[in-house]
Amino acid sequence: MKKNLLNSPHTQGTAMDSLLAEMVLEKALLNFRKEKIHQKIDQALKDNNKQEFLLLTEELKSIS
């Protein structure tokens, strides 16, 4: 029977893979969120909605 030790290379690789997957997912979610905000900013400009535009640009600045 194979035993996995806490500091074995296999465990470190699995932890590193999980961290990398989490980082990729967070980056993808951030990019998706930014794209949605950009779309809403474009719509606010088309609608000539200054208040919405200002709110959205502040939100975009806060996550960038």
Rank of each mutant, 00 (worst) to 15 (best):
T57D: 11
A44W: 12
M1P: 09
K50S: 07
S64K: 13
D17K: 09
S62E: 13
A28M: 06
H10K: 08
S64M: 09
S62K: 08
L25V: 08
I63N: 04
E52P: 01
A21C: 00
D47W: 01
L6E: 10
E22V: 00
A28S: 10
A21S: 09
E22W: 01
P9S: 10
A15D: 08
T14E: 11
L19R: 03
E26P: 00
E35M: 07
M1D: 12
L19Q: 06
H38I: 12
H38V: 06
D17Y: 07
T14D: 02
K50T: 11
M23D: 09
A28L: 03
I63Q: 06
M16G: 01
P9F: 05
A44N: 13
F32S: 11
A15Y: 06
E22T: 04
S8G: 10
R33S: 07
E58C: 03
L20V: 14
E59I: 03
S18A: 09
I41H: 09
S18K: 09
N48I: 08
K50D: 13
E26S: 07
L20E: 15
N4F: 14
L5P: 02
M23N: 06
L45W: 08
L55W: 08
R33E: 14
S64T: 10
M1Q: 13
T11Q: 11
R33I: 02
K40S: 13
E58D: 15
D17H: 08
P9A: 06
N31W: 07
E58S: 13
P9Y: 07
Q39F: 10
D17T: 05
E35V: 04
I41F: 05
A44L: 02
E35D: 15
F53P: 04
S64D: 14
E26V: 06
L56M: 03
K2W: 15
L6H: 04
D47N: 15
E26N: 10
D17P: 00
